[in-house]
């Protein structure tokens, strides 16, 4: 009896000690961790926007400054309408974040959408930047994946991501088709008139390409209402240089 009681007491004290230590570590380090996650997100948005180079390392201040200067976050609902962020979070369930890359005079240079898709071994997360014409890809970046290094893992490489630049989300008739990963080189496997909708595939990573194509199509389709507005050129932006936020309005036809 006393033996069992001793064990229970010991276990109790141990649990309490371990629990306290974990709580302290978790709550004490949380601000740093969240800061890191935010930083990483900003870095990857900037990468998709083509503002930073993967080969060069940037300080936190540089990234923060670049982000503040160039990127504005907006929320849109599934029909593509911009929602007021202050009230949106509680009311709306399907908010799609969209990041606007500021241009010089016209206001918007490009818009950036988060991409999340199934891969062969796990989720692939990244960002895709599309120019203000609503159909030309300006950049693509992957920041998290668990594909096989050397095969599917090539999606994180510059050569693969650079291939997206200049590709179109719409076919020659102007219909939405998204952008897909070809099986092999586009030159040999895709008919000439739809090459603008395909990027070169990765040899030995057919499945990764297939999943990425499907995921891109799904993600881009969700943002299609926004892209249509860009294509019809009816998003207007008034940029005020001093204010951290600028106002957007949409003129319906």
């Amino acid at each position: 009896m006393s033996e069992a009681f001793k064990s229970i007491c010991f276990a109790g004290v141990l649990c309490l000690t371990c629990g306290l230590m974990l709580t302290a570590a978790s709550s004490g380090l949380k601000p740093y961790q969240q800061d890191n996650i935010r930083m990483d997100q900003q870095k990857n948005i900037l990468k998709a926007a083509g503002l930073i180079d993967d080969q060069i390392s940037y300080s936190r201040q540089q990234i923060n400054q670049l982000y503040q200067e160039n990127i504005i976050r907006l929320n849109v609902d599934p029909t593509g309408l911009i929602i007021d962020t202050a009230t949106a979070s509680e009311k709306e369930q399907h908010i799609l974040p969209i990041y606007i890359l500021k241009g010089d005079e016209t206001g918007i240079e490009a818009y950036i959408m988060p991409i999340q898709t199934k891969g062969l071994w796990g989720t692939i997360s990244g960002y895709m930047a599309v120019k203000k014409d609503g159909e030309t890809i300006a950049g693509f970046s992957v920041y998290q994946h668990s594909e096989t290094p050397g095969l599917g893992g090539e999606i994180e490489k510059k050569w693969f991501q650079d291939d997206f630049v200049g590709k179109k989300l719409v076919n020659t008739h102007g219909d939405f088709v998204a952008v897909s990963v070809a099986k092999g080189k586009t030159d040999s496997s895709v008919p000439a008139d739809s090459r603008v909708n395909y990027v070169d595939g990765i040899s030995g990573a057919t499945l990764t390409g297939k999943y990425l194509s499907l995921g891109l199509k799904e993600a881009l389709a969700a943002y299609e209402p926004v892209s249509i507005r860009f294509r019809q050129n009816n998003i207007r932006c008034r940029l005020q240089d001093q204010a951290p936020w600028c106002e957007y309005e949409i003129k319906q036809k």
């Binding site: 033996e3 001793k6 064990s7 010991f10 276990a11 141990l14 649990c15 371990c18 230590m21 974990l22 570590a25 978790s26 380090l29 740093y32 961790q33 890191n36 996650i37 930083m39 990483d40």
Partner: peptide, 29 residues
């Protein structure tokens, strides 16, 4: 206590592992 020693060892080890994981996430993201 000898009868619960493995679980005691595991509790200590996992506490340390979680602490180091949190630490890496905060400073070596």
């Amino acid at each position: 206590p000898a009868n619960i020693r493995i679980i005691v060892e595991l509790a200590i080890v996992s506490t340390l592992v979680i602490i180091i994981d949190e630490f890496l996430r905060a400073f070596f993201y």
